[in-house]
Structure formats: C-alpha cells, structure tokens
Design a protein around this nucleic acid. Structure first.
Lengths: 214, 214, 214, 214
DNA sequence: TATGAATGAGGATTCATTCAT
DNA sequence: AATGAATGAATCCTCATTCAT
C-alpha cells in the first residue's frame, strides 16, 4: 500500500527527481492516457499536489519526462567514442544503440506515446532540438571517414544510418510481445536478444559496404 | 448534436462493421486508454449500447479490431506473389511491406498499443496465430530458393528477414513525428517517404547478399 | 444525509426539473462559484452524472436556471393586467414587481451572480431576449395612456420606469442584510417590508406625476 | 512567470495595503467564493503566506476589504457639504451618491457578495456600525430643514431617502449588464449613464416634493 | 435489434492553509 | 517580515457500463 521511499521533506531537488522517476515508469507502463496521477504521486512518495507544483499538469509532467529522456540520451551519446577504424567504430555505434534501448525499455514506450500524440510535447521543448547537432556530426564524421577509406559506400547520411539501425532494434524490442505471439517463439529471452544484436551488427555492416555492382 | 450518419436501423452486419471501423480509427488516434466508448459510438452512428451488444466491452472491441487487422494482413499477404527470381521476389516483398504499412498508419499505432498492454488481447485470440504459418512458409521458400541459387547468404530465416524489413519501415513511419522534430527535417512528405522506401529495398538486398562478394 | 425525494426512475422530465430546482436554490444561496455540483445532485435526488447529461456542465446548468427565471418572469408578467385608469394601473404594476421579487428572493441573488460574471450565460441565450418585447410594449402602452390623460409627465419610457421601480425594490430586498446592519434596524420583517412597498407605490406615483402641480 | 511588482521587502504597511487592494479587485471580480488566494497574492506582489500573516484567513481578508470600503465611504461622506438650500442640498446628495458608486464599481459587487453570505463578515465588525450615525444625522438634518421650509413632504426619513436614491443608482449600475442584454440597448456607455444620473436627480426631487393631495 | 436514461467509481485538478527556514 | 515547499480535502467532470423499454 505505501512505498519504501521515505517522506521527502524539504528537499525540492529530490522531490522533483522522485516524481519524475515515478512518472517515467508509469508513462512507460500505461501510456500518457493510462497513467494515473494518483499512482505516480504515491509511487514517488510525494504529495499529489507537488506534481502540479513542479510540473503544472499531467502533460507538463510528460513533457519533463520526455526531456529527461533526450537529455540522458545526449549524456550517454557523449560517452560514445568513435575514434577507431570505420568498421570497428560502426560496430561500436551499433552496440551503443543496442545497449541504450535494451537497457531502457521505457524509452520505447514513451516515444511511442509521444508519436501517438503527434509530438505535441516535444515540439514545445527547445532543449530537445539542441541535442541533435553533436550527435549527427559524430555520425557524419564516421561515415565520411569510412567512405574516404573505401570501406563504406557513399550516399548514406547520419539520419539514414541511424533510423536503419534504431529501426531494427526498436521494432524488435518494442514489438517483442506481438512478434513473439505471432511467430510462436519467445523473442524476449537473452538468447534471442543476443542473436538479434549480432544480426543487427552484421546487417548494418553489410548494408553499408561498398558494392561491386553499383 | 447528432451525427450525420443515418441511423443504422436493423442492419446488424453494417452496424457491427461501422462500429469496428470507428473503433479502429479511435484506437489508432488515442490508444486503448485514450479512446472513448462514447466517441466511438457517435462516430459509428450507432447507439453506445450496441457496442456492448456486439463486443461485450471495450477490451472486446479492441480485440476485435486487432483481429480485423491481422485478418486483413493475411488477406493482403495472400495476394503477395513471390514467384519470381529471388532478387526480384525480395524486392516485391519489401514493396509489399512498405505498401501495407504506409497506407495503414493506424496499424502501427494499434500494434504499439497492444505491445504496451503486454499482448493481452492478442494472446486470447486463436485466429491470429493461425495466420502466421502460410506467411512464414512463403518467406522461407523464397529464402531457400535464394540460397540455393547462390544469391542469398544462408542463416537468415523468415522471422529475421521480416523483423529487419518491417523494423526499418515501421520505425520510420511510426516515429516520423519525433524523428522529424529531432532531425529538424520533415520525414513525412512524399519525397522523404519514397527515398526511404528505396533505401529499405537497397539495404535489404545488401544485407542478404552472399558475403563472398563484398 | 439523504433527501426525501424518492429516487427518480425513468422520468426524464421530472429528473431534469428537480435538478433545475435544486440548482436554483443552490446558486441563489451560494452563487455560481460557491454552489457545489455534488450538493445540487444530492438535493435533487438525482445522480450527479445526470447533471452533466442534461446540462453539459455547471455553467450550462446556471444558464438553464437563468432561462427558467426569465421564462417564469414572462409567464407571470403575462398575467399582469394593466387595463385600468393609468394611476391604478401604475399601482398594479408596482404591486406586481413587489410581489414578484419579494416572493422570489433567489432571483435577486442569481441575477447578481450573472452580473458578476458579465452576463456570460445570458448572452448566449436567445430565449431570454425574446421575452422583452411584449413586456416593454405593455409598459409603453400604459405610459402613453397616462401622458395622454394628463396624469403622467412625458419623457419617461418603459425602461426608465422599470429600472426605477425595480431598483428601489431590488436594492431594498437584495441588500436587506447589510442595510439592516448599517442602519441598525431590521428591514427584513413584515412591517418594514410592507412600509417599503407602500413607499415605492407613493414614490413612483409622485415621480411620474406631471410637473405642473408640484 | 513572476510579477512585475517589485518584491515588497520589509515594508509592512505597503505590503498590507497592496494585498488589500488586490483583494478588493479580486473579490469584486469573482466574488468571495470565486476569488483565489493565490491570485490575490500574485497580483499584490506579496507572498501568499503574508495574507495569512496579516489577515488570518480568506474570510478575514474579506472582512478587511469590507471595512476598508465602509471607511472610505465615511471619509468621502465627510466631504459632503449639505449646507445649502434644501433643494440644492438634495441634488448635491444625489450627485454624491452617484459619484460614489459610479466611480467604484467594485463596491457594488462586494456588497452583493456580503449580502449573499448573510452579512457574516460585517456583523463581526464594530467599526462599520460606527460610521452610520453621522451619516444619518446629516441626512435627517437636511430632511428636517426641507420640511420646515415647506419644500419637502414630511414622513421621509434618512433611511428611506437613502435606500430610494441608492436603489435607483445601485440597480442601474450593478445590473447594467443584464439590463443591457434584456432591453437590447447599452446602458453602460457615458450617455446612458449621464441620462440616468439626471433622471435620479429629477425623480428624487419629485418624490420628496410636498403634494397638494396628502 | 435498438435506444435514452441512469449510475458509481474514479479522473485530473484546485483550494485554502500550514510548515520549516 | 518574508518565503518556497508541502498538504489533504474538495471540486468539477468523465468513464465504462447497465437498466428499462
């Protein structure tokens, strides 16, 4: 009935963070419409009123969760080191994406929610747009090096590479349930997951390799 | 106040179909939790009570929508003709998937909903599982022919191929909104879409090509 | 805790009327902002949900109350017979106004509420405006007859007469509490009320008399 | 986000006065029930806590506003000079009342609120009762002089005169919105207002004139 | 088959107020 | 004197669902 979080007295930073964490879990589990403000409040150990105090309303809370996700993405991406031969760097990048999404299943659900609602909350946020530049630059740098070295084919830009890689991973992870049911085999166990990770690494390498044909 | 749809009097088949159509649109637009039974009733031109008469409850309605989606998928898949040289057949298959999802944006939203809810509705339905076999057989046949002809590499099964192709398409289409915002360019216009379709065709061909060549 | 009104089953007209009556009392006693939807529902014996079913929301309910008040005014005004010598007819008119407001203390409170809110609810209602014409015509007819007979001075129109008479009565009745406190005497007892009624009759007669006499 | 009023630091008198002013406006605009403590605090530029510090609670604040209104009434009334021939003095008095209410529209709304709540706040205040005596004495003096001079009829006391005059003015001003809508003409513009002022002057003079009849 | 009326639990949000500093 | 943080009880309103016809 009650939570193990001790009553958050007079520690605004912690209160805010705890609400945000509880909201993230709730929105991921039930979606924007399905999550209950009451439940988030209780799970966070804070008074319900505090949600409105810090985030104005449920949508404001969702927006804050979204921002925190992109901010974390940025922070994690900053640790990504692509200083390596193009082939190896590409593999590192795939591993990074895999690691990011496979350890943060909530992110997929929340991004799906945001897409369901037409990007309403993201659009209002300037902080999110700012994160894109360094991320894209990093990838473009890698692609250019690979093309120059003759190990990547030209014509693939950062967005294309990213959507391709994330697409394979995101769909596999986010639709694991329906896919498992439809194909009649469990795609959510460690073995199937590791196999998919390997497949994405291979497929990515192949699809960017220079072709004798073209 | 009332709807312009004429009262559907004494035409059970039509009433049921209209409710289903309205529900499909509503669930796609707002999710399972966000869709309103009242709104579906009004949009369908039927009385709210009829929803309960035909579908028991909201979840039953969602299940019916889900079934109708997979049924349609099956029906459309049955028209897919892979009788062609492996390369061409593979392209046909990619085109088929692209066509299917790009003309049915609701499907993505509804499948996301179902995944959000842990596959609860799908699991109860036997009709859905039955659709998989012929679909997989078709793909496996193609893959075998390709391998035999030396134009496909071995080790790629139907599920892998399908999830790879659908992943790239599904993510691009379903997350078009957030991707457009993040990358600061419109990925939902016809040009960007056609480019992506072409990319998926190429990437799929490359990733399945025998590795000797590269 | 519960009300003596029996549960209103399947009698929409009665349900609606009972909600309206309870709302009228509540809005009069506490104002638009102070009245509680829950309390109105309970007092009416209906389910709270029915308020929204019939009136959309609290403001819609207030609007309906307002309309019912003006409608009643119209109905009562229609019984007003000014077919008499001008002097006597004028007295009848004053008596009518007195009777109307002194037996309907809620009306004053509700009209005050509407003025507080800038006429927001009344403005949207076409039904109310329609009531004015016959009412004004009646008064104008009386005034013309009086002027023609030389017993009323010219230059007083229906609106002026009405606002003058109602003003004296409305203020006395509606501000009886603060006036009683300020003047240190009870202006709400029957004696004070009857005296005021008489005063208004006299004052009205005098202020409309032809000026030659004074 | 914050208000442009500079933080009222360490100036208790000013802080109190600013809260009172903001409260007056808020109570006038929304009524006792509708006014929001938060909004008053923000509008006053003071911290919400200060309201409780100076006025105990919302009702205490309302009481203070009420007192400030009557105090101001007293102060203004003290400037009223009725030293003139009765006719002229009566006109001056009417002008005074008109001036008072037409330049303080909030007063009407607040008095209405107080009446709605049964005079609850006024009753507790001794300061208000004390204001009445000199005011009534002034009027009674005028009435006596007029009767003695044979230009006023006897039988009209200070309360009667006051309620008559204020009634016509108060109702016209306070119900200007609903009256304008009902009569289909704008009674709130300068022309209509000036005409009403003149009418009240005339009507008051006529109703107090000695009658040949009586 | 079809419908308008009715319901109770629960939804987000707001409010006046108090605490700790 | 002044403030940001915290609270719990309401408040309006909505929801999926059922009843009676």
């Amino acid at each position: 009935m009650s939570q193990d979080t001790p009553p958050v007295t007079r520690d605004p930073v912690r209160t805010r963070a705890q609400i945000l964490g509880a909201a993230r879990r709730a929105f991921a589990a039930q979606g924007l419409g399905g999550a209950r403000v009451d439940a988030i409040a209780e799970a966070s150990g804070a008074n319900k009123r505090m949600i409105y105090y810090y985030f104005s309303d449920k949508e404001g809370l969702f927006r804050a969760v979204l921002e925190s996700i992109y901010e974390e993405l940025c922070a994690v991406a900053a640790t990504l080191d692509l200083d390596a031969p193009p082939d190896a760097a590409l593999a590192r990048y795939v591993d990074f994406v895999w690691e990011y999404y496979s350890t943060r299943p909530e992110v997929i659900a929340i991004l799906n929610s945001e897409n369901l609602h037409g990007g309403r909350h993201m659009r209002g946020s300037e902080r999110i747009r700012a994160l894109e530049r360094p991320f894209v630059d990093q990838l473009d740098g890698l692609l250019e090096r690979g093309v120059a070295a003759g190990v990547f084919r030209p014509g693939v830009d950062a967005m294309t590479l990213h959507v391709t890689v994330v697409g394979m991973i995101y769909f596999f992870l986010g639709n694991g349930t329906t896919l498992s049911i439809f194909f009649g085999r469990d795609l959510r166990g460690p073995a199937a997951r590791e196999a998919w990770h390997a497949h994405v690494r291979t497929a990515t390498a192949m699809m960017i390799a220079p072709t004798g044909r073209s």
